[in-house]
Computed example of a mutant assay.
Amino acid sequence: MKFFITVGNTRFDSLFRELDCIAANSEHEFVGQISDGSYIPKNFPSFTFKKDISTQIEEADAVICHAGAGSIFRLLENNKKLIVVFNTDRIDEHQRDIASFVQSESFALTCWELTELESLIVKLANFTPKKYSKDDFHKVDKIIDYLFC
């Protein structure tokens, strides 16, 4: 299985350290977007930022990402198998709510502790996520009329 790992614009060195150890003895392929992280994986290719990561997402069989809402919803809209990793490196814990949501709705597997990650990668092969359906927001015009009338 080919995995793409993305952490958006948030450093998550501990995730890449763990994945580097996993990749050393894995038959899976990994490619990582490490943001401004200081840890550079030795066992798989990585990059800091790209203007567009659509190609990496399309080429991947599955994605491992931080629990950032922007990353998660983009991936769910692309119907990717997904492991969402709660970023314990962050001081704030706003990612906990979104990680809990995707887990409770069966949209993705959720990793709460990095020691669980290898077993979740194995579990993902047999995981069938619930299909995500985006609800478009159609009240923009009404809000603009209300604000400027």
Rank of each mutant, 00 (worst) to 15 (best):
F101M: 12
L19W: 04
A24S: 09
F4Q: 09
I22L: 01
S104P: 10
E113W: 03
S35L: 06
L147F: 12
K139M: 14
C21P: 03
K2V: 11
L75T: 03
G68K: 00
V122N: 05
L120Y: 00
S35Y: 02
D61S: 07
A99P: 04
T6K: 00
S119P: 05
N126D: 15
K139P: 12
K123N: 07
I64P: 01
V31G: 05
S106M: 10
L124D: 11
A24C: 11
D135F: 14
E27N: 06
S71E: 11
L124Y: 08
S35D: 05
K139Q: 14
N43F: 06
F30G: 05
R17S: 01
F73Y: 10
F107P: 00
L76N: 03
N87H: 03
K42A: 11
T55E: 15
I64D: 04
K2G: 06
C65S: 05
F30L: 10
C149G: 14
L76T: 07
S26W: 10
E113A: 10
E18N: 03
F3S: 01
E105D: 07
L124N: 05
F44M: 07
A99T: 04
I22W: 02
A23K: 01
C21K: 05
N126K: 09
D141N: 13
L124K: 02
E118F: 00
D97A: 07
L19V: 04
L117Q: 02
E105S: 02
F47H: 11
F3I: 06
K123S: 07
W112L: 07
I144N: 09
V7L: 10
N126F: 14
A69S: 06
H94Q: 13
S119F: 14
H94C: 09
D92S: 08
D13G: 05
H66D: 11
F3G: 01
A99F: 01
T110Y: 02
S54V: 15
D89W: 08
Q103V: 00
E59I: 06
F101L: 11
I121R: 03
L124A: 03
N79K: 12
K2E: 12
D141G: 09
C21N: 13
N43T: 06
L15N: 02
H94P: 10
C149N: 14
K50N: 13
T48Q: 13
L19T: 02
A24T: 09
T128M: 12
E113L: 08
S54M: 15
V63K: 05
F47V: 09
R11V: 15
S71Q: 07
I98V: 10
Q56Y: 13
T128C: 11
D20L: 02
K51V: 10
